[in-house]
Amino acid sequence: MYQLTNVTKKYDQGKRSVTALQDVTVSIPDGQMVAIQGPTGGGKSTLLQMLGALDRPSSGSVLLETEHLGSSNLSSLGDSQLGRIRATEIGFVFQGFNLIPTLTAQENVETALAPLGGTNAARRERSAAALEAVGLGDRLGHLPAELSGGQQQRVAIARALVKDPTVLLADEPTGNLDEETRDEIMDLLEGLWRAQGLTLIVVTHDSAVARRAQRRLHIKAGRLTELA
């Protein structure tokens, strides 16, 4: 579970300081599906970076407690320790898919397993299974450019889930997709969330996506509020 306490994040932009998060305090239990909404520049992505161990707050604490890890204060860990947590506990899905263009679908999924060690054969087997789970068992050798947007996002979801993370963070996962594909991707994510017992946190502008979540948070000018 996550426990954020008085998290503030400030960025220096030239001579002025911009506050992206202001005294954010929130608790997210294990296995919950949470949607974070808010206007552009409100602090959604910054909050997601705090949750994803990609950045540290200027003040406050971000606690992550998992079965494998125990309790970790992400605000006080070094780069290598944060990297290790990202490698084992957190999966990411990005709006732009962020696949490596020169690698095939299967090889892209394997990149998430590279930091965990293991044999090439084991990695290939797990990546193939992950792609099978997202319905791309017949596209293992395709390059991203040979796949549709929806298929590329499926590959990205497979890459996020292949390592069996505790948390799945999705930043506008359907932002680049049409409505039909959006629903397919959300159905897939929701299905995997239910099946694997993940904590799923989705940042979205799309109310249709947000309505699927158990819990909706709204962030504006760096301040987080709970929506009914």
Binding site: R86, T111, A112, P115, A160
Partner: peptide, 15 residues
């Protein structure tokens, strides 16, 4: 973006 993504999924600086 490629290297940022790889770091996000846990690749170390050394790798």
């Amino acid at each position: 973006r490629e290297f940022g993504t790889l770091k996000a999924i846990g690749w170390s600086n050394g790798r």
